[in-house]
């Protein structure tokens, strides 16, 4: 059995996008996540209209995965062998609030299906899977903070039991105060991978 390596990683926070530790996009003109995500989309030009239908956290996860996978040839792998393991602390609380507001309006009970469908965090996994036609294992963990040990334990178990050979994993969170996406790609080539290395690349932008 081969080994896993960190192939790429992408970090989005505070109006900045870092790919493999390098700043690749920033927009200091905008002061809210909504215009920032649109700005990233316009810069990246992925021509994926489904983006506009997503809620904010799915947009964030989608854009982070676009950066992560933009130069990666996923066709080199069996789509069943690519797993997605994500985590966050606030689940989909912002969209949950939007849904609650949409059903609390006076003058009728009209829940919006397109809002409701985003009231589960694993929809982010769904959006990435749809975009790249991935059919592998997946899991979403709700934890207080980014936990490299939790993610690497789960990834290592899947890898050792031959459930997956490639992994898209990390943290995507939005709450009323901040947003952050950190995704890494593990594959048979790249730089050294273990819990400590994941913590190291995550903490590169801790104070930005």
């Amino acid at each position: 059995m081969g080994k896993l390596f960190i192939n790429k990683y992408c970090h989005i926070k505070n109006n900045k996008v870092f790919l493999d530790g390098k700043l690749v996009f920033s927009d200091d003109e905008v002061h809210d996540i909504k215009p920032f995500l649109k700005s990233v989309y316009r810069f990246l030009k992925p021509a994926y209209n489904k983006f506009f239908k997503m809620d904010e956290i799915s947009k964030l996860a989608y854009l982070c995965s676009e950066y992560l996978l933009q130069d990666v040839d996923l066709s080199a792998f069996n789509k069943d062998d690519i797993a997605i393991v994500l985590s966050n602390s606030d689940s989909t609380s912002i969209t949950d609030q939007n849904h609650q507001n949409s059903i609390s309006k006076e003058g009728g009970f009209f829940p919006s299906p397109s809002i409701f469908v985003y009231t589960l965090p694993n929809i982010m996994i769904g959006e990435i899977s749809i975009r790249h036609k991935l059919k592998g294992e997946n899991a979403f963990f709700i934890v207080e903070n980014f936990d490299a040990g939790l993610l690497t334990n789960h990834i290592n178990n899947l890898y050792l039991t031959r459930k997956a050979k490639v992994f898209i994993a990390g943290w995507v969170n939005i709450n009323n105060d901040s947003y952050e996406a950190f995704l890494f790609l593990l594959s048979p080539c790249g730089k050294k991978y273990n819990k400590g290395e994941i913590e190291k690349v995550y903490n590169q932008h801790k104070y930005i």
Partner: peptide, 17 residues
């Protein structure tokens, strides 16, 4: 327009609302 099944539900809601 390339709408999907969720959009269909949204159109049903629009007609009623």
């Amino acid at each position: 327009l390339g709408l999907d099944s969720i959009d269909a539900l949204e159109l049903i809601v629009l007609m009623e609302k």
